[in-house]
Design a protein around this nucleic acid. Structure first.
Length: 555
RNA sequence: UGGGGCGUCGCCAAGUGGUAAGGCACGAGACUUUGGAUCUCGCAUUCGGAGGUUCGAAUCCUCCCGCCCCAACCA
C-alpha cells in the first residue's frame, strides 16, 4: 500500500508508542448505495488496518430513521465484502450506542454543558447569526440543571411533539466556527428506526453520535472527508468534556471522477426518476453498478491505490479507472470471438456442410489458459466494420480484392460483394488459401489485417449492451444557468444490440464471468439477465483502439 | 464578510533547504495471427504570483491572487 500523509501519521503514532496497534472504521450511513468514492475510503480504512496489523470495523451511522433502510444495510455489507474486505464480527451500529449516548447527554446536562431549547428551527438558525458576527444566546440557555434534566427525560418519554424542543450543547454562541455555536445534540423524531423500532423518539445528531461511537470502539484514527474538518473542534470538545477515549479525526479529499456524478442526492434522483435502471445500473459509479458492469474488485482496489490520499480536492479522469480495469482484465479474461453487427461471409471454395476444427488460444497473456476448439466452415459471420467497399488509407481489413486473416482460421480474399435492392452490402464472398490454416503464412507473405468471425452453424444469438459514460461532459456538475443537470445524461450511454453472433462457448458463460471479445472489448455476462438460452453481455470497457484514434486524426 | 482547508505537467501525485519521482493521458517508434498486449523514446529550466532570507528555496519569511467547505432539528 502506498504511503501518504495518513499512513505517515499512523507510522509516527506506532513509532512513538502512542498506540500499540491501530483501529479504523468505515462508517457509512445506510441511506443509499455505496459508490466508488466510498470504495476509496473502504480501501484506505481496511487497507491501513491490514498494513499495520490493526483492525477495521464496519459501522453503520444510523442516526436518522427517516432516511435509513435495511435494504441499504444489506447492499453495503455486500459491496464491502465484494470489494474484498472482511470486518469479521465487528459489525456495529451507532444505534447500538443510543442508550450510552443518552446517558452521556444527561452527564453533560448535569455538568451544565447542555440544555433543552424550545426555540424553533427557524429561531435557532436566526440566533446562530451570520459568519461574520456573533450569534445570540437562546432565552432557554440558562435553565437549571434540574429543569433541563426533567425536560430531556420527558423528551425521551415522548411527551413532546416533533420539532418542539432540542437538546443543545452549551459552548459558545460567538465562536468563529459556527459548529461551536451551541450545536444541536438531539432532536425529537417520532419515527420508526430500522433497528430500534419505536424504542426512541429522540435521535442523536451526527456530531453528537460520531465521535463517541468512535470512542466506544476505541478507534485510533477516525478518517473522514474534508467537509468535516470544521467539525473536528466539536468532535474533540465532546470527547474531552466526557473524559472518554480520544480518537484522532483526520480528513482527506473525497474522490471525484469525470463523466459521472457522485453525490447521493443525484444518484438517488437518477434512480427514482428511472433515468437509469436502478442502483446497479452499469452506468452508475455505484459499487453495485460497477460490479454489474464487470469491473473486477482488484481493479477498483488498484485504482484506489493509484489515486493516492491527500487533502487536495481534485477530479480523477475516468481514463485512469478504465486503465486499471483493462490492466486487470487483460491478465485474467478469457478471449472469445463475438460478432456484434453481423455481416455474412461465404467461403465460396469451401464445400457446403463441411467443417474443420481449429484451436484458438484462450488467453495469450496466460499460457495455462490453454486453447479451445472453434469450427470453421463455408458460412461465417464477420463484423460489418471489418469490410469496406472503398477502404481509406491504412485500413487493413477486408475490401474487394483484398486479403485478410480470419483469426485462428485461414487467410481469405474477397472476390465478390452481394448487395440488396437498397444497395447495402449483405454478403461478402471470399476464396480461402488452404496453405494458411490456423492463420500462418508459410510463404512468408504479410497479411496485416486479422478479423474475428463466428461460424454461422455454431453461432449463438446474444444481446449485447454497450455502455458509454453517463455524461459526455467531463464535469456534469458544471451546468449552465437554468439547465437541469439530469438533462445532460447522454442518451447514447446505453446502446442495446440484439442478434449478435457469439461463439457457442459464450452461451455457457456464468453470470458475472468476464470475457474479452477479441478486438472489441471486455464484456461480462449480465448478473441479472444472462441465461444460457438468452445470453446477455454488458460491455465493461472497450479495448484501446488505435484505429479509431487514427481515424479521428484523419478527421 | 468570520472560521476552516487547498494551490507542483492536460489529470492524479512524490517531494519536508541541496538543485522537480511515478502513474494516467498524449506524441513518436519497435514488435505483433486481437489496429489488443508488450517494449523503447519523448513529455514541468520550473513548482499560483511578487518580493525577501540563504552559497543554494517547490520546500523558510512577507504580502498578494485563486479555488473549496461551513449559517439542516442531514450525514
Amino acid at each position: 500500500m502506498a504511503s501518504h500523509f495518513i499512513a505517515d501519521i499512523i507510522e509516527n503514532d506506532l513509532a512513538t508508542g502512542k498506540h500499540p496497534t491501530i483501529r479504523t472504521r468505515f462508517p457509512p450511513e445506510p441511506n443509499g448505495y455505496l459508490h466508488i468514492g466510498h470504495a476509496k475510503s473502504i480501501c484506505m480504512n481496511f487497507g491501513l488496518a491490514a498494513k499495520y496489523g490493526g483492525t477495521c470495523n464496519l459501522r453503520f451511522d444510523d442516526t436518522n430513521p427517516t432516511k435509513e433502510e435495511e435494504e441499504y444495510v444489506a447492499s453495503i455489507r455486500e459491496d464491502v465484502r465484494w470489494l474484498g474486505f472482511d470486518w469479521e464480527e465487528r459489525e456495529y451500529y451507532a444505534s447500538d450506542y443510543f442508550e450510552q449516548l443518552y446517558l452521556w447527554a444527561e452527564q453533560l446536562i448535569e455538568a451544565g454543558k447542555a440544555y433543552v431549547d424550545d426555540l424553533s428551527v427557524e429561531e435557532i438558525r436566526e440566533h446562530r447569526g451570520p459568519w461574520n458576527a456573533p450569534g445570540r444566546e437562546s432565552p432557554y440557555r440558562n435553565r437549571t440543571v434540574a429543569e433541563n434534566l426533567d425536560l430531556f427525560r420527558r423528551m425521551r418519554a415522548g411527551e413532546f411533539p416533533d420539532g418542539s424542543r432540542v437538546l443543545r450543547a452549551k459552548i459558545d454562541m460567538a465562536a468563529g466556527n459556527v459548529n461551536l455555536r451551541d450545536p444541536v445534540m438531539y432532536r425529537i423524531l417520532h419515527a420508526t428506526h430500522h433497528r430500534t423500532g419505536d424504542a426512541w423518539c429522540i435521535y442523536p445528531m451526527y456530531d453528537w453520535a460520531h465521535g463517541q461511537s468512535d470512542s466506544i470502539e476505541k478507534i485510533t484514527h477516525s478518517i473522514c472527508t474534508l467537509e468535516f474538518e470544521d467539525h473536528r473542534p466539536l468532535y474533540d470538545w465532546f470527547v474531552r468534556e466526557l473524559g472518554i477515549w480520544p480518537p484522532r479525526q483526520i480528513e482527506f479529499a473525497r474522490l471525484n471522477l469525470t463523466h459521472t456524478v457522485m453525490s447521493k442526492r443525484k444518484l438517488l434522483r437518477l434512480v427514482e426518476e428511472k433515468v437509469v435502471a436502478g442502483w446497479d445500473d452499469p452506468r452508475l459509479p455505484t459499487i453495485a453498478g460497477l460490479r454489474r458492469r464487470g469491473y473486477p474488485p482488484a481493479a477498483i482496489r488498484d485504482f484506489a491505490e493509484r489515486i493516492g490520499v491527500t487533502k487536495q480536492e481534485g477530479t480523477v479522469e475516468l481514463a485512469l479507472l478504465e486503465h486499471c480495469v483493462r490492466e486487470e482484465l487483460n491478465r485474467v479474461a478469457a478471449r472469445r470471438m463475438a460478432v456484434l453487427r453481423p455481416l455474412r461471409l461465404t467461403i465460396v471454395d469451401w464445400p457446403e456442410g463441411e467443417f474443420e476444427e481449429l484451436a484458438a488460444i484462450n488467453n495469450p497473456e496466460d499460457e495455462t489458459a490453454g486453447t479451445r476448439p472453434v469450427r470453421f466452415g463455408r458460412d461465417l459471420w464477420i463484423e460489418r466494420d471489418d469490410f469496406l467497399e472503398e477502404p481509406p488509407k491504412k485500413y487493413f481489413r477486408l475490401a474487394p480484392g483484398r486479403e485478410v486473416r480470419l483469426r485462428w482460421g485461414y487467410v481469405v480474399k474477397c472476390v465478390e460483394v452481394v448487395k440488396d435492392a437498397a444497395g447495402e452490402v449483405v454478403e461478402v464472398r471470399c476464396t480461402h488459401d488452404p496453405a494458411t490454416k490456423g492463420g500462418g503464412t508459410p510463404d512468408g507473405r504479410r497479411v496485416q489485417g486479422t478479423i474475428h468471425w463466428v461460424a454461422a452453424a455454431d453461432a449463438v444469438d446474444a444481446e449485447v449492451r454497450l455502455y458509454n459514460p453517463l455524461f459526455a461532459a467531463a464535469d456534469p456538475d458544471d451546468v449552465p444557468d437554468g439547465v437541469d443537470w439530469i438533462t445532460l445524461v447522454d442518451p447514447g450511454s446505453l446502446e442495446i444490440l440484439a442478434g449478435c453472433k457469439v461463439e457457442p462457448a459464450l452461451a455457457t458463460a456464468a453470470p458475472g464471468d468476464r470475457i474479452q471479445f477479441e478486438r472489441t472489448g471486455y464484456f461480462t455476462a449480465d448478473l441479472a439477465d444472462h441465461t444460457p438460452e438468452r445470453p446477455v453481455f454488458n460491455r465493461t470497457v472497450t479495448l484501446r483502439d488505435s484505429w479509431a484514434k487514427e481515424q479521428k486524426k484523419a478527421g
